[in-house]
Simulated scan of single mutants.
Amino acid sequence: MTGTLVNVATVIAGSILGLIFKQRLPRRVVTVVFHGIGLFTMGLGVSMFLESQWIITVVLSLLFGGITGGLLRLEERVENMSENIKSRFRFTDERFTEGLITSFLLFCMGSLTLLGAINEGMGQGPELLITKSVLDGFSSMALAAAMGVGVLFSVIPLLVYQGGITLLSMWLGDFFAQSVVNELTATGGVLLIGLGINILNLGKLKITDLLPSLLFVVLFAWMQYRQIFPFSLF
Rank of each mutant, 00 (worst) to 15 (best):
E79Q: 13
F89H: 02
R73F: 09
E79N: 14
D93Y: 04
L62P: 01
F91M: 08
G70Q: 10
L74I: 15
S87W: 08
E76C: 07
F64A: 14
R77H: 09
S82Q: 08
L62H: 02
T92H: 11
F91Y: 13
N84S: 14
M81C: 11
N80G: 09
I67K: 06
F89P: 03
E83P: 05
N84L: 13
L63V: 15
T68H: 00
L74V: 13
S87T: 15
I85D: 00
L60N: 00
G69Q: 02
L74N: 03
R88A: 10
L62T: 01
G65C: 11
G69P: 02
E94S: 11
I85E: 02
R73N: 13
L71E: 09
F64Y: 10
I67R: 03
F91K: 02
L71D: 05
S61R: 05
E76G: 05
G66A: 06
L60T: 01
S82I: 10
V78L: 14
L74Q: 04
S87V: 08
L62R: 02
L63N: 02
E75S: 09
I85R: 00
G69Y: 03
L63I: 15
N80H: 14
R90N: 13
E76D: 12
F64P: 06
G70S: 13
G70Y: 06
S87R: 15
I67P: 04
R73M: 11
F89L: 12
E76N: 10
R90M: 11
L60R: 00
T68G: 00
G70K: 08
F64S: 13
S87L: 12
G65A: 09
R77M: 04
E94G: 06
E79V: 11
R88Y: 09
F89A: 02
L72S: 04
S87D: 13
R90T: 09
R90P: 05
R88Q: 07
R88I: 10
F64N: 06
E94H: 07
L71A: 12
T68L: 12
L60F: 12
